[in-house]
């Protein structure tokens, strides 16, 4: 239930404002008048009305917040959230003492939680709003770790002259690896495998490829 307040010079005026603002016909509004014009001459006092809306669509941020709150509540894990909303994105920063548990091994639990939150928030919605979950700066730290990994593997490939296949990663993680090495003059990267989790291969560019543009990496 959402309650909105409107003011007008007269009751009719206030109702008209509410109707225009909400895009609902005035006879369909549930209204309560809270401050009536008491005296005939009290032009200074506007009329205040309250409009009750039960079937109003919840905002995506509200849906995300209540889904996650309820979820952690059932297993007795205390969390709080900070939500930032952009046009097509919702950043949810979770604050909790159980961060390790929520992140899981290599972020597996956080990814799973993010997928489910995305589905719940966008259920029956026309415009997809991407929900990004983060906790204790995990995304930044993970990105940094992956960049370090990319440089280390590139050095190894150069030293051994043999390509290296990394462990399976999600699209976000693979992108970090590709980006980290995209300007490397000696090695190139490509994704191998099918599905959401693919493996990135870091390999030596052939010398003849230096003059030609490198073939586009498949998959991403």
């Amino acid at each position: 239930m959402v309650i909105m307040e409107y003011e007008g010079r007269t009751e009719r005026d206030a109702i008209k404002k509410a109707s225009e603002d909400l895009g609902i016909e005035s006879d369909k509004l549930k209204i309560e008048v809270i401050s009536e014009k008491t005296k005939f001459f009290s032009f200074g006092n506007p009329v205040k009305i309250r409009v009750f809306l039960d079937d109003i669509e919840e905002e995506p941020s509200t849906r995300a917040e209540s889904f996650l709150n309820g979820l952690f509540n059932t297993i007795g894990v205390d969390i709080s959230m900070e939500i930032e909303e952009e046009t097509n994105k919702l950043y949810v920063e979770i604050i909790s003492d159980s961060a390790g548990l929520i992140i899981g091994k290599r972020g597996k639990t956080l990814e799973a939680l993010q997928l489910l939150t995305n589905i719940v928030v966008n259920k029956n919605e026309k415009n997809w709003k991407k929900v990004v979950l983060d906790i204790e700066n995990y995304r930044d730290r993970r990105e940094h770790t992956l960049q370090e990994l990319a440089y280390k593997i590139a050095a190894k490939v150069k030293k051994t002259q043999k390509s290296q296949l990394l462990e399976p990663m999600n699209p976000f993680e693979r992108r970090v690896i590709h980006m980290a090495l995209q300007n490397d003059p000696v090695v190139a990267t490509k994704s191998e495998g099918n599905g959401n989790l693919k493996k990135v291969r870091v390999y030596l560019k052939r010398k003849s490829n230096h003059k030609r543009p490198a073939p586009a990496a498949s998959g991403d």
Binding site: I75, T109, A112, L115
Partner: peptide, 18 residues
């Protein structure tokens, strides 16, 4: 799609019961 949601549910359930 290809069991993605079921897999995510299992992952979270595993964490909850860990």
């Amino acid at each position: 799609k290809s069991g993605r949601i079921a897999k995510a549910i299992r992952t979270i359930l595993n964490a909850a019961i860990a």
